[in-house]
Design a protein around this nucleic acid. Structure first.
Length: 503
RNA sequence: GGGCGCGUAGCUCAAUGGUAGAGCAGCGGCCUUUUAAGCCGUUUGUUGAGGGUUCGAUCCCCUCCGCGCUCACCA
């Protein structure tokens, strides 16, 4: 049972009073004819013509002034001022409005458009109705535009926890939050449009899987009662999408949620939106070109420019992006040439000599050490969009080796603003090689390591029917959303980010 | 999981080893062109929870809860 504070109790009492007067505080239907923006546009076409409209929205401010009252309501398009006078609505109705309406209420108002003495296009109200009484006051929010044009916000909702937990309140009072999520929707639509235009088929593969795979991550485990078996929430789409290539679907993609039972950070959420595509007969170089085209298309659709501002950086997405061989990048930033150190022992020794302050895991494989050098030294320098290519084989069990170089695979990652945006490779399609890679991975992890790749026999069975050579791609859509909305935390681009349960 | 920090009114914040204030919101008035409206009056708190030290804790100590930053983890 909810407990009400003093403000809420006053409003609840108003609900009772309204009902006692025969006024329904939550009527079933609204009769809106225009949004605020439509009404203003129509009025401004010809201000001598009478424009009669019914508007609806949330009351955001009330300024009663004796025999008249100004109020702003906000709808999906913006705010509009209501102007109520005793001349039109009568003394009794004006008093009713002042007494019974509160900030946050949804209401409807019918009237004619007019311009106030201060010059604001407003609705001169003839009649009004309550649409939904607000019991709990929304966090107060006042924007004041000062003479020099700067907007000062008084008493807004900016507690990060409250904003994430009660996103509905955050959205209700912070218009720029609504804008962020409009941009996010536009981003996803533009990615979809691009891939559709390239002839890719959008598919849906299982979220609930008998076996997880396609990435190294701890899964969420659940249980199906009737089948009497454990199920996993997917950690990637990869293995299912590649099964479709076996089925002669040549270009497929999926946009959806992945789930990883791991740490939460400014760039990690346990469930996140992934885009993956697989492209038969293409290799990682072709995927690289398609990637830069796709991303610049999306950035341009959302922001209107190929260039964005992200924090202190200005980032240009126009292709071609910088291409940097991983070996070269690591050499330039750490002074270590990984090609000269072909074993984990040798590489570890080199790191200790050249970078005594660095603290790599002494038990790491060679691939993990390369990854360490990458994230420690190279990654922070990759601000402008950069394709880092050619990765160590042992951290890439699903990628194909470079002909003639068994330690290196045809793989690239796209980096922007110092973090990984996407990951792609020429996909391994040799079932025998794939099987030995799975077994190899198994040896590199402890028996109880939850990140150990389970051996997916059905996937190998599919591959044995024959899988065309292909290029595959995966991208964290939330991270791209962070870039185009200039948000420093993944939470700001997720409507309901993962939070600990409230007590 | 480790480290650091934070938690005070509906919102934004202040204060102090002697049980708390401001602005906004609210409530009661006045006001026929306001937009942070103004003016007069006025209310609001288990100071995140529990325990300890103390004559006395919101402040000091411990535990817990929640959040933020960060490290670890994360192909």
């Amino acid at each position: 049972m909810a407990e009400y504070n003093s403000l809420e109790r006053i409003r609840l009492q108003k609900v009772d009073e309204l009902r006692a007067e025969g006024v329904e505080p939550y009527p079933t239907r609204a009769k809106r004819t225009h949004t605020s923006a439509q009404a203003i546009a129509e009025f401004e076409k010809d201000e001598t013509k009478e424009v009669k409209v019914t508007l609806a929205g949330r009351v955001r401010s009330m300024r009663p002034k004796g025999k008249l009252c100004f109020a702003h309501i906000e709808d999906g398009d913006g705010k509009i001022q209501l102007f109520l006078r005793v001349n039109e609505v009568g003394e009794e109705r004006l008093a009713f409005f002042n007494k019974m309406f509160d900030l946050g209420d949804f209401m409807e108002a019918t009237g004619t458009m007019m311009r106030t003495k201060a010059g604001e296009a407003s609705l001169q109200v003839l009649d009004f109705t309550l649409l939904a009484k607000s019991i709990s006051p929304l966090p107060a929010d006042k924007d004041v535009t000062q003479e020099d044009g700067t907007v000062v916000r008084y008493a807004s909702l900016d507690d990060a926890e409250l904003r994430a937990r009660q996103r509905y309140a955050d959205l209700a009072v912070n218009p720029e939050v609504r804008e962020t999520f409009r941009k996010r929707a536009k981003l996803i639509k533009s990615l979809r449009d691009f891939l559709d235009g390239q002839g890719f088929l959008e598919v849906e593969t299982p979220v609930l899987q008998p076996l997880y795979g396609g990435a190294a991550a701890r899964p969420f485990v659940t249980h199906h009662n009737e089948l009497e078996q454990d199920m996993y929430l997917r950690i990637s789409f990869e293995l299912y999408l590649k099964r479709l290539l076996v089925g002669n679907l040549e270009k497929v993609y999926e946009i959806g949620k992945d789930f990883r039972n791991e740490g939460v950070s400014f760039k990690h959420n346990p469930e996140f939106t992934q885009l993956e595509f697989y492209w038969a007969y293409a290799d990682y170089l072709q995927v690289m070109e398609l990637t830069e085209q796709m991303v610049v298309h999306a950035v341009e659709q959302v922001t209107g420019s190929t260039k964005i501002r992200y924090g202190e950086h200005e980032i240009e997405f126009k292709p071609p992006w910088r291409r940097l061989e991983m070996r070269q990048g690591i050499l330039e930033t750490s002074g270590i040439d990984i090609a000269e150190h072909r074993t984990a022992e040798a590489l570890l020794k080199a790191i200790k000599e050249k970078q005594p302050k660095a603290a790599p895991d002494p038990k790491a494989t060679r691939g993990k050490l390369v990854d360490f050098l990458l994230s420690e030294f190279l990654e922070p320098t990759l601000i402008q969009p950069t394709f880092l290519y050619n990765y160590p084989r042992d951290i890439s069990p699903l990628a194909k080796s470079i002909p003639g170089d068994p330690l290196t695979v045809e793989r690239f990652e796209g980096y922007v603003a110092g973090f990984e945006l996407c990951n792609a490779f020429t996909e391994l399609n040799d079932p025998l090689d794939q099987e030995s890679r799975f077994l190899e991975m198994g040896r590199d992890y402890e028996a109880d390591d939850e990140e150990k790749h389970p051996l997916d026999e059905d996937y190998l069975r599919a591959m044995r029917y024959g899988m065309p050579p292909n290029g595959g791609f995966g991208m964290g859509v939330d991270r791209l959303a962070m870039l185009v909305t200039n948000k420093q935390s993944i939470r700001d681009v997720l409507l309901f980010p993962a939070l600990r349960k409230e007590e």
